[in-house]
Design a protein around this nucleic acid. Sequence first.
DNA 1: CGGATATTTGACCCTGCTCAACTGGCGTGG
DNA 2: CCACGCCAGTTGAGCAGGGTCAAATATCCG
Lengths: 209, 209
Amino acid sequence: MPEWLPALAVHKRNFEVKKGEQLFKEGEAVDGIFFVQKGSFKIHKRWDKDKELIIRFARSADIIGHMGLGKKLLYPVSATALEPAVVCYLDMAFFEATLKVNAELAYMLIRFLANELDDSHRSMRDLAHMPVKARIAQAFISLHQQFGVDEQGFIDVEISRQDISSYAGTTYETLFKVLNEFAKQGVLTLTGRKIFITDLVKLQGIVNG
Amino acid sequence: MPEWLPALAVHKRNFEVKKGEQLFKEGEAVDGIFFVQKGSFKIHKRWDKDKELIIRFARSADIIGHMGLGKKLLYPVSATALEPAVVCYLDMAFFEATLKVNAELAYMLIRFLANELDDSHRSMRDLAHMPVKARIAQAFISLHQQFGVDEQGFIDVEISRQDISSYAGTTYETLFKVLNEFAKQGVLTLTGRKIFITDLVKLQGIVNG
DNA sequence: CGGATATTTGACCCTGCTCAACTGGCGTGG
DNA sequence: CCACGCCAGTTGAGCAGGGTCAAATATCCG
C-alpha cells in the first residue's frame, strides 16, 4: 500500500531487518505496524515445536502487523525476514488515531483487509479439500504471482524447502517427493533456493486435478 | 455490530429470508451488504458438486457480504439461512460512500475485519495440522461459543450433520464415527439437530490432543 | 404400502505422514 | 592429507488416519 505513506510521512521511522530476523513473534504485545520498503517476509503461525503454517508473504509496499488492530493485545502471528529488508514503523496508537480521522486511509485499509480475508478463505477451502500435490503446485503458482521472475526466469525470491512445505501445508519429505515428480514431468525445477517454472500451464493443470 | 446501525438507519431496508434461502451465491455480482437482525446464516465456499467448506456462521448483529468490499466484483462465498431470518440490506455504493466519510464507522469495520482475519488464520493452521477428531471437537466448542445454550442446555442453533462436517472440514461419515465415540465417552450427544455438550472440559482436552 | 430419501455402519484402501537409513559435502583435528 | 563426525539433503519402508463406496437400516411421504 505505497499510496498510504505520504499521509503518514511525518511520523514514519525506517529501519533495517537482517535476514532471518523476526519483526515480531506470535504472542508478543502489539506495539506498532510496519510497511515493507524493501525485501520480503514470511507471516507464519506456529503449531508445535517444529511445525508451522506460513499464512502469506509480504514484500515491498505490503503492510505487516495489521492483525494488531483486532481485539487481541498480542500478535497472533510472527513475521520473519526472508532476506535483508527495510521496513517503516508506525506506533500503533498513532496509526489508530490517524485511521479514526482519515476516512480515505481507513477505506483503503478496509479494501486491503477484505482482499486478505478473501485469500484466507480460499486457502482454508484448499487446505480442507485439495490433495497435497495440488496444494504444492498452487503454492508455486502463488509464489510466481507474488514475486514475479528475474531476468533469468527464476521466481524472484529465495526460499527454503522447509518454508515451501510450510506454505503448502505439508511436510518437508512429502514436498521432496512431489518436487522430483514435477521435475521429471518437466513442470518445474528447484535448484538451491531458486525456482524455475518450466510449464505454468501444466502446473495449473495439476492444481485443477 | 449493532452500534453501526444508528448511523445508517435512514437508508436501511429490512426484509425476511426463509430457511434454506440464499442471500447471495458465490459468483454473483456484489450489490449490497447485509446486517443480520434475527436468525442465523452459514457462510460457505463451494469445492465440488457435493463438497463445501463452511467458513463461519453469522447471527444477530453480524455483518454479511463485506467480502464485496474487495477487488472482486463477485461474492467469493455464499450465504444461506439456517433458520427463518430478518436482515437489513444496504446498497453497496451507499455503504462505501458512508465509509469514506464516516471514519468512526470505518474504524469499527477495520477492527471487525482484523478479528475475522485472525479467526481465519487460526482455522487455516488447524485445517493443516489438527487431526479430524480434534477439529470436530473444536467445531462444537466454536458453535457453543457463538450460539450459546438455550434453557435446556442445548446449543442454541439447529444445524444438520452435513453442515457440521463441512464446518469441521471433514466428511459426513467420518463425523458420524467420531460422534459415536464422543457420545460413548460422555462428552456430547447430538439428538436430531440439537447438540448437548455434557463435558466441555473433556471436549477441550480432545482439541488439545 | 412402496418407493425414495436420509441415517448408520462396515470394509477397504489410498494418500501422505513418520521414522529411520543412506548419501554427500565440509570442517576439524590427528 | 586422510579419517572421522556432523549436519543438511534425500530416499525408502511402513503404517494409520480418514476418505470412499456400498450395504443395511430407518424415516419420510405420496
